[in-house]
Amino acid sequence: MIESFGWPEFMFLVRATGWTLVLTVVAFLFGSIVGGAFAIMRLAQSRILRNVASVYILVIQSVPVLMVLFLSYYGLSLAGFDIPPLIAASLSLGIYVSAYLAEIWRGSIEAVPFQQWEASSSLAMTRGQQYRYVILPQALRISVPPTVGFLVQLVKNTSIVSVVGFVDLARAGQLINNATFQPFQVFGSVAVIYFLICFPLSRLSKHLEKVLHVGRTH
């Protein structure tokens, strides 16, 4: 039976959008925490910590996220763990996100002039205090554009989770198109929804940059 692209189909897209958003947010939060820790480890004074972080980042960045996804979904269920697709999907994406954010943030931290380290250590601050009060606030501002750029990519890349049976926005579009065969309406709507998510993010980035820029005239 051939249906047409109407209100129920559109609502189906909207619900799928919800899942795309949930996945993005969970993956990003998980990835931020783990990635933040690895960014700092990458710059630690201890060589062991630095090496551990380097290896983690290198491995995750060299493996397609699809493999991580298969491993966590099929691999873990073979090993006897029964994990729902949502958990498998957000965990895998989160791991992928953590490696990239670790690198983005390491770069942002390194972009803070080394004189800021010298000045703060000359004022008897501990390394933790230097990070907290001097380095990270400056690195944060530097990191906003690349981080948001990555987040926008992430919103779109979440579509990869359809391979483990997860119905996100892109997958929902496919399903509806298979039923209605109205690709222009269906994928047009899907594209508009992606745009409506990503465009405000870019604007937010500009806004954040300004807010975090207080007091700097150039």
Partner: peptide, 15 residues
């Protein structure tokens, strides 16, 4: 090497 994200007063009081 002042801290650019802090005001003059904050720069001085921080340490």
């Amino acid at each position: 090497n002042l801290f650019p994200h802090l005001t003059v007063g904050q720069n001085i009081m921080l340490a």
